[in-house]
Simulated assay, not measured.
Amino acid sequence: MPTHDQIAKETVTLHVQGVELEVATVHRAGELAPIVFLHGFGSTKEDYVDIVRHPAFAGRPFIAYDAPGCGATRCGDPSKVSIPFLVATAKAVLERFGIGNFHLVGHSMGGLTALMLAHEQSHRLLSFVDIEGNVAPEDCFLSRQVVDYPADTADAFFEDFIERTWRSPFYSSALYASSLRHKVRVEAVRGIFTSMVELSDHGDLMTKFLSMPFPRMFMYGEQNASLSYLPHLRANGVKLAEISRSGHFPMYSNPVEMWERLAGFLTPASAE
């Protein structure tokens, strides 16, 4: 049985766009091309640590880290965090760990970050799994609340956001909402959400996604099977993975099926 002894926890100091970061990472070394995992808003690197529990990924190196403004990563100025800042952070992490070609997996906020990173670094990507990351304006059901539900202070907005999320009728929403205060710096919320809305509305994300030359998979929960663009993705060569008994958070609602679908996609794509 794989154990957590196979992975290393390491905090690395980086400077990104003039901001000092102490980035909390988990990683495992190996000879094959690594998987780079990017978590979503309100989540952490621990979403992906169970990779060591799955024999299909035996020997596969990987890295996951807490994004600035989230988890155990310390950020000198959380108000500077945005999707472009997170892309710059990802590039700094890749450089710090000497990562060349890699497989990329991103969820939600991390999926959008990953899409922008993959667009910039397409020559290095071996595959890309987008887990409910933003590719169209309709994906801003969380982030657009910064526009739709204005509040007098950042704290007031975040408290109301947590309550709305807790009461959402989607799988794992209450579980997710219950830890938001502990996993997100409130000063980072507005910059993240406003940049997600801006890119989703005006960033031509679908064109970027469909133009990528490497294998791609879009993963979504069955509660989001009505997303209007799913047939368009399929028609343009993107593999679809619908996770049963799940909404926006398959790693919380149905992790067994999530990891099975990731393994089924990444193993054939992992000849290197």
Rank of each mutant, 00 (worst) to 15 (best):
Q6A: 07
P68E: 14
K208I: 04
E31H: 03
A174H: 14
L227H: 07
L112V: 04
K9Q: 12
I99Y: 02
M196A: 13
D201Y: 13
T44A: 11
M219Y: 01
G71L: 09
V93M: 10
L199D: 05
F157H: 08
F170K: 12
I51K: 01
R96S: 12
F249E: 11
L180N: 05
V52Y: 01
E159G: 08
S179R: 15
L180A: 08
E132L: 04
D66Q: 10
V238K: 03
P78S: 13
V19F: 09
K183P: 05
D155F: 10
H119R: 09
L227G: 05
K9H: 15
A24E: 12
D155K: 10
E95T: 15
L94W: 03
Y220Q: 11
D152R: 15
R167D: 15
E31D: 14
A271E: 01
D130E: 09
Y48P: 00
S143V: 10
P55V: 01
N134F: 07
S226W: 13
P78F: 13
V256T: 12
K183V: 13
R261Y: 00
C75G: 05
E20Q: 15
S200R: 02
V146Q: 12
H107T: 05
E95D: 15
G30N: 00
L125M: 12
L86H: 14
H103N: 03
K91W: 06
L104M: 06
A235E: 15
D77G: 08
R96Y: 15
C75F: 07
A225H: 09
V184I: 13
L14E: 09
N236E: 07
E132W: 04
R164M: 12
T44D: 07
E260T: 02
F128I: 01
A56Q: 06
L117C: 03
N236H: 15
P213K: 02
D47E: 14
L175D: 13
Y149H: 14
T207Y: 03
G18W: 11
R28W: 01
V23M: 05
F193N: 14
M116E: 15
I51D: 00
G110C: 09
I162M: 09
E31M: 02
R216H: 01
F158L: 04
E46N: 09
V19I: 15
F62D: 00
M116H: 11
A56M: 02
V186R: 10
R124T: 04
E20D: 15
D155A: 12
F141E: 10
G221N: 04
E132R: 03
S143A: 14
V81E: 11
Y252G: 04
D160F: 09
E198C: 05
Y171E: 13
S82G: 10
H182Q: 15
S228V: 11
E132N: 05
P61K: 05
S244M: 10
T3I: 02
V256L: 10
H232E: 14
F62I: 00
T153H: 09
Y176S: 07
V52M: 02
M258L: 11
G40W: 08
